[in-house]
Simulated scan of single mutants.
Amino acid sequence: MKKICFSIILLFIFSACEKDDFCTQNPITPKLVLRFYDVTNRTEPKAVESLYVWAAGKDSILVNQSLDSIAITLNSIATETVYNLSKGSVVNQITISYTPTQIYVSRSCGFKVNFNDVIFNSNNTWISDFNTTTTIIDNQNAAHVQIFH
């Protein structure tokens, strides 16, 4: 009888344990990477002095410094994100259109979103020109858009 009780107790103890589930793949939803270049020397990175960046309709500022590249988030539940980039007192508005695609990574990591059919538009106030390097955003290892100013 003691063996049966001991077996039942062990059964309850081991059935209460859960398998450890850790996300080790780092499946982040990638950000849009913008890299700024000199308009006269198109291979030379050029920092934007006093760069302010904020999403249209939002009052929070993402960046307030001098940088030659930034990574900004895209709205994963919409098909378009609009940002304002201010250089001094001049504001340039950029619109990024895309098709978000959810990708299941694992039970512990959940989902991540990639962005397909990416189209970048600018009203080109202080931005002279831009060059998109890809139409798919599935990582943030390199610049997706080169901006010349």
Rank of each mutant, 00 (worst) to 15 (best):
V90A: 15
I77C: 07
S97G: 08
D59N: 13
V53L: 11
L32Q: 06
W54I: 01
V63E: 04
L62W: 07
A55R: 15
L74N: 04
E44F: 11
F111Y: 04
Q65K: 09
I94Y: 00
N114V: 07
T95M: 07
V90N: 15
S69H: 05
N116Q: 03
S60P: 12
V90S: 15
D68K: 00
L32A: 08
S106Q: 02
Q65C: 09
K46M: 08
V33T: 06
V105M: 00
V39S: 13
V48W: 02
Y37F: 09
V33Q: 06
T40Y: 15
N114H: 06
L34P: 00
S50T: 11
V91Q: 14
N92I: 11
V33C: 05
K112H: 02
N84Y: 15
C109S: 00
T43P: 00
T95F: 06
V39W: 09
I61F: 05
G88N: 15
V48H: 03
R35M: 05
T40L: 12
V63W: 03
V39R: 09
N84F: 12
E80A: 11
L34R: 03
S97C: 07
S76D: 10
V91G: 14
I96N: 04
S108L: 01
L85T: 08
P30D: 11
V82H: 10
G57C: 04
W54A: 04
